[in-house]
Amino acid sequence: MAEGISSDYAVIELWKAVKSIKKDAQDVSVIEGNIPKVAEMVMEYILKNINYFVPINNNLVRPKTYPIDNDPMSVNWLFVLHTLNFSLWYPKGTKQWKVDGKKGYFGLCNAIRRAIEDGKPIWNPEYYTKMTKSELECILQSDDGEPEIPLIDERLRILHEVGEVLLQKYKGTFMECLKLSEYDADKLMKLLSMNSSHIGTK
């Protein structure tokens, strides 16, 4: 979601606006039965022009702080990144959490890169399952020291829990999940869903 509207209040405003437009608009309508057809057309276009879209994705969409593609820790790096990628915003109009001048997702990428440069193996579940709150606060510290990243306690708990699952079931690496799902997105989602039902039940 765009940075300018990424707060709980703004999301509610956007939802209300969309609901109102859908209900009252006279010049625009959405034929819901045609949505799958449009999605199929978009995917066909992307696949036919994949050589155009891949460079754009790598150079413009992916943050420069992403790990190198052939780096063996890349999969676990990205797993931690996306595990922590939720609720990164404070209410609109208040001071936002930033790392290296970036808010939200890109700030999180910067924080994880900074931790690795400082010699902290944030991609390793053996490291982050033992992490204390003060250690995570240090890793995710904002440029000015305030505000701290939202929901720090929840992020620490989730890191501990997903790390334990990786260590106990998947040889301590998310790559094992990919192998077991045969690199199939649908099978991976089912595998993750199965494991998520056990997280938080202790």
Rank of each mutant, 00 (worst) to 15 (best):
E161R: 01
D143W: 02
G200H: 05
W89M: 14
Y127S: 00
I122C: 01
Y90V: 00
L167Q: 02
S29E: 12
T201Y: 04
K64P: 14
K103C: 12
F86C: 15
T132I: 02
E3P: 12
V61R: 09
I139A: 08
K37V: 07
V18N: 11
W97R: 08
Y105S: 06
G107R: 01
V165H: 03
L180K: 06
N59Y: 02
R157S: 11
P55W: 10
R113L: 06
N49T: 08
D184H: 03
L47E: 12
V30S: 05
W77Q: 02
W123F: 15
I199E: 09
K102Q: 15
G119R: 00
E148H: 12
I5V: 13
Q141H: 09
L159V: 03
N59R: 03
K19E: 13
Y45F: 14
P147A: 04
N85W: 08
I31W: 13
K190H: 09
L60N: 13
E40N: 07
Y105D: 06
L136Y: 03
K120E: 09
N195P: 01
N51F: 05
R114H: 04
K179I: 15
D71R: 12
I56Q: 12
A111E: 10
V18G: 04
I35R: 09
K48A: 15
S181V: 11
E32A: 13
S20K: 07
D186P: 01
T83V: 15
L60H: 09
A111Q: 10
N57V: 09
P72V: 04
Y66L: 13
M1W: 10
P147C: 02
I68T: 11
T201N: 07
N51D: 15
K48Q: 14
K22G: 02
L191M: 15
Y52A: 12
V75I: 05
I199T: 06
R157G: 10
N58W: 11
I158Y: 02
I116K: 03
P72S: 03
T173D: 02
D27M: 08
K130L: 00
C138Y: 06
V11F: 07
K169Y: 05
S193R: 09
M41P: 04
Y183H: 00
Q141L: 14
F53K: 07
R113A: 04
E13Q: 15
L151H: 06
N51K: 13
W97H: 07
L191C: 07
K103L: 13
L188K: 01
G163I: 03
I112C: 00
P125M: 01
D100W: 11
E164V: 03
R62W: 06
E40H: 14
Q168T: 07
S193K: 04
P55K: 00
P147V: 05
V75H: 01
S181L: 13
M1Y: 10
N59G: 04
S142V: 10
N49I: 06
Y9A: 08
K187W: 04
G200Y: 11
K102H: 10
Y9H: 12
S134E: 14
S193P: 08
L191N: 03
G200M: 10
R62K: 08
E182H: 01
I5G: 09
V38T: 11
I68K: 15
E161L: 13
S87Q: 14
N124H: 03
H198D: 08
S196I: 14
K202H: 09
S142P: 15
I158N: 00
P36W: 03
I56Y: 09
I12W: 05
E3G: 07
L47W: 14
N49A: 02
M194R: 07
S7I: 03
